[in-house]
Design a protein around this nucleic acid. Structure first.
Length: 483
DNA sequence: ATGTAC
């Protein structure tokens, strides 16, 4: 098989490959890639180069990982997972990404396709009005500096205390929507300025809000789906993909500058400047961690306010309360984050960048309702193809620091997609295929065309066969709101 | 991803 690398790639099994430390000077551990042969063959050179660069970072534990949706990113590959010893290892903003706590949220309803279809146009208009989208959009929540500091510290809980959501939402959010260690004193005024008016906004790029349908044949595991309130019968659900907006972006930018200097001070050299890092226990490492947690909490809050806006839109259109419509939150997962997590072999600082936590059954971190089935994992596909709901497994706990894939992964650059596809035509094509699109920008829409992404079914098949997550359901889009 | 520019 011809791969986009000159390095030796050893097959561990049909869905797991390893690059031994002998392949690059300075590698402290092997690099491992989860992929079918076909997905591995299609991976860009950047994945092999970057995952082996990560394997050279001080304090890395066991191996540097890349998921099947992996592709080239800033420093670390998107789809990258790496765990470090919190005592003598590093933390790296490139291992989290610019969009700190970018993540996915899934909301169920009791509505069926036949009830929603006649009102879909109205519903989409209502959602488009209530959830500001696009670059630089402002939210409807007015925050004082003091309020924003509370959001940074309290995350989704702040929103619920202010009436944006239900008390019961909290237990269905990773870390209850609030990471410990958020320290607003390490966030710059400029970051606050960028973020203070963006609560409850979708953003742009691959961020979206989608109305989806779960058909009977879309269910792979009926009992597990039922535990999440999903019964099929063309049930309508709502998926949200967004993060910490300009605020997280500024936190990342601020600390990348700090870390480039800090590396010299600590005598750390990296294979690529984009891997800038600092010892986790250093003042710089702790300052970034404190600021990153602030950004992560605002992202949880952002998705919480958006959930509130979605519920209000449904209430307006269907004339019933969101409770009567059964609009419970199924789950909210982060896929750009660094966290200290406890495993059987110790406590590790796990970086996930375009990778999702996938804790297995019995994990004490899971709420009672999911402890028996494992953590829900929400994987967004391209807007044309559909998305998947999975659950974490014990194997993920042993092999991948409780981690799995996050989405389909790009195969084509944004520029190339724009050259290949016209937004207006794509919108018409999607309407013909039963997907109503509301987009802020036509060129932005073209960048997200399905042909620019890997086939999500193949990618999900890999993590399912590899045993690091289990398929529960496939969700098909009928309406997409795009920034 | 991002007031898409240091």
């Amino acid at each position: 098989m011809k791969l986009n690398t000159d390095m030796q790639v050893v097959k561990i099994n049909d869905y797991l490959w390893e690059i031994p430390p002998s392949e690059k000077p300075g590698m402290l551990v092997p690099a491992r890639i989860y992929a079918s042969a076909a997905i591995l063959g299609a991976m860009d050179r950047g994945v092999f180069d970057q995952v082996t660069n990560v394997a050279c970072l001080p304090g890395i534990h066991r191996y540097a990982l890349c998921m099947p949706d992996g592709h080239w990113g800033y420093g670390f590959p998107i789809g990258g997972v790496a765990a470090f010893n919190p005592e003598d290892g590093v933390i790296s903003p490139g291992g989290v990404g610019y969009d700190i706590n970018c993540g996915m949220r899934l909301i169920r309803t009791d509505l069926s396709l036949s009830e929603v279809q006649p009102k879909l146009e109205l519903l989409m208009t209502e959602l488009f009005r209530r959830v500001p989208a696009g670059v630089g959009s402002r939210g409807f929540v007015n925050l004082s500096r003091r309020d924003f500091r509370d959001v940074m510290r309290q995350g989704a809980g702040w929103c619920i205390a202010k009436g944006y959501g239900w008390e019961e939402d909290l237990e269905r959010i990773e870390e209850r929507g609030c990471l410990d260690g958020a320290d607003p004193t390490h966030v710059t005024d400029y970051a606050v300025e960028r973020g203070i008016n963006q609560l409850g906004t979708l953003g742009s790029g691959n961020h979206y809000l989608e109305i989806q349908v779960l058909s009977d044949k879309g269910i792979y595991d009926r009992a597990t789906a039922a535990a999440m309130g999903l019964t099929g019968r063309d049930q309508v659900v709502v998926m949200v993909h967004c993060g910490s907006r300009g605020f997280g972006h500024q936190v990342a930018s601020d600390y990348l500058k700090v870390f480039e200097k800090a590396m010299r001070r600590y005598g750390i050299s990296v294979k690529d400047q984009q891997l800038a890092c600092a010892p986790f226990r250093s003042p710089e490492g702790q300052d970034y961690f404190g600021a990153m947690n602030c950004a992560a909490n605002t992202a949880f809050a952002n998705r919480q306010v958006i959930t509130h806006q979605i519920r209000e839109a449904f209430e307006t259109v269907f004339g019933e309360s969101a409770r009567r419509l059964g609009m419970q939150l199924i789950y909210d997962v982060a896929h750009n984050i660094a966290k200290v997590e406890r495993y059987r072999d110790g406590e590790w600082l796990v970086h996930r960048k375009g990778a999702t936590r996938a804790f297995g059954p019995g994990s004490p971190e899971l709420p009672a309702c999911y402890r028996g089935i494992g953590q829900p994992v929400i994987c967004g596909g391209s807007m044309e193809t559909g998305s998947y709901l999975l659950v974490g497994t014990d194997r993920a706990m042993q092999e991948t620091f409780g981690s799995t894939m996050h989405g389909s992964g790009r195969t084509m650059s944004r520029a190339q997609a724009k050259r290949t596809v016209r937004g207006e035509q794509l919108m018409r094509d999607m309407k013909q295929h039963g997907i109503l699109v509301k987009a802020v920008s036509m060129s932005g829409l073209a960048e997200e065309a399905g042909l620019a992404y890997k086939n999500i079914s193949d990618v999900v098949g890999t993590v399912d066969h590899a045993g690091i997550t289990k398929k529960v359901a496939e969700l098909k889009p009928i309406g997409n709101i795009k920034g």
